[in-house]
Design a protein around this nucleic acid. Sequence first.
DNA 1: CGTGTGATTGACGCCTGTCAACGTCTGTGG
DNA 2: CCACAGACGTTGACAGGCGTCAATCACACG
Lengths: 235, 235
Amino acid sequence: MKNLQTLSCDDGCLARSDSIFKHLSKEELDLVTFEKTVEQFKRGSVIYRESSRINGCYCIQKGIVKVFKTGIDGKEQIIRFAQAGDIIGFRSVLSSELACTTAEVLDDAYTCYIPSETLVHLVKNNGNFSMDLMQITCKELGEANAYITDIAQKTVRERLAEILIHLKKDFGLDDNKVLQISLTREELANIVGTATESVIRLLSEFKQDQLIELNGRKIKILDEPGLIRIGNLYE
Amino acid sequence: MKNLQTLSCDDGCLARSDSIFKHLSKEELDLVTFEKTVEQFKRGSVIYRESSRINGCYCIQKGIVKVFKTGIDGKEQIIRFAQAGDIIGFRSVLSSELACTTAEVLDDAYTCYIPSETLVHLVKNNGNFSMDLMQITCKELGEANAYITDIAQKTVRERLAEILIHLKKDFGLDDNKVLQISLTREELANIVGTATESVIRLLSEFKQDQLIELNGRKIKILDEPGLIRIGNLYE
DNA sequence: CGTGTGATTGACGCCTGTCAACGTCTGTGG
DNA sequence: CCACAGACGTTGACAGGCGTCAATCACACG
């Protein structure tokens, strides 16, 4: 583990101890190494686009990717974010459907592209890999179900507080307690499922109430328990 | 196929040609047959309950089951319905989490219970079974993502029209064009994510507009294209 | 310095949730 | 056979959360 940082990005996703590839045999690792393609994406570029056919999945080695669906009038609904260690695009590959989301890069990213055939081969032939991937998928499904309930039942105010807590959990805070992910107000609105103006107003309220501090896109978390209370997140 | 109806319920889920078990070997079929338990549930009974540990999954052989999460103030959010041929509970088994939903019987049901160990054994050792189950999971995930976008962006009116179309697709109409699933107004509200009164008012409007006809819980679909238009379902 | 994107604020009004009252139907028990 | 309870459906009144529109500000960039 100690030389993790010195690994070339070619080895990145295969070597991580928490990677989806942790259960591969020597031969399978060689196969993946042979078949995969490392790609680099700049902020703003699109890895794959909704309703396109996609012939493989992407392991994120570095960077942040936002995954969203396009709804009425082209309004984005952000489904999730992916960062180092996450894998995106496999849903469409394995369900043999067109991509149901678009994946766009927020922070410059390196990805490792695995062709469908390789992925399917692994699922079919390596029971442990299969279980791992199944587990990831099932967790995502559980989160999606929870979010359906939240959007359906909570107010925008509650959801915004909740999202701030989630972002903190997923991306952490820097030394100054500032969220380590930078989003526009519009993007925040597209996670919460509301209008940009509503996010702005509610963030101001949170600031007034000493829950957060704002500095452009930097959001500093002052009172996490307070946000948890507002978001009804007792669990 | 022609003697499907004469099969005892013990053979039901294993014999269906569209079943998740279609790719099992003779030995595996024997194993499942040996390990499974057929259970009968009356309307109103609960198959498994949210946040309980669940040690297996259930294949529905007959009946209708509603799967829901309990949100704020105990308000239900219906996630999906399951009917003959569907499998429920595997999400929690495979993600090693507590059940994230409750499954309650709407129409008297027969289920076939498969213990976790058997399910996991199959996933690990039968690549085709694994792929099939993965496909089911991925499809559910795709639907969940779509529903998140809908709830976040569409009005209650649009969502109600959409749900009626979905129910028609999933459960069909009888000879009289009446939806083959009977739900209370509250249950409809708990799918759409709104208040019971709103559903009642909107259904009345739909009736006024000659889109549907109401007779207690019986909903007759008069103008499907009209509902599709209202629900913004062009695809 | 103009242009464009994003952030902010205010005004306005509708959708929709909440509360309350009442009607309807079914099953139960006296 | 009737009274009653309880679950469900319906309707009306009302307020407020939140979306929409528009104007203005802030800031970065070519």
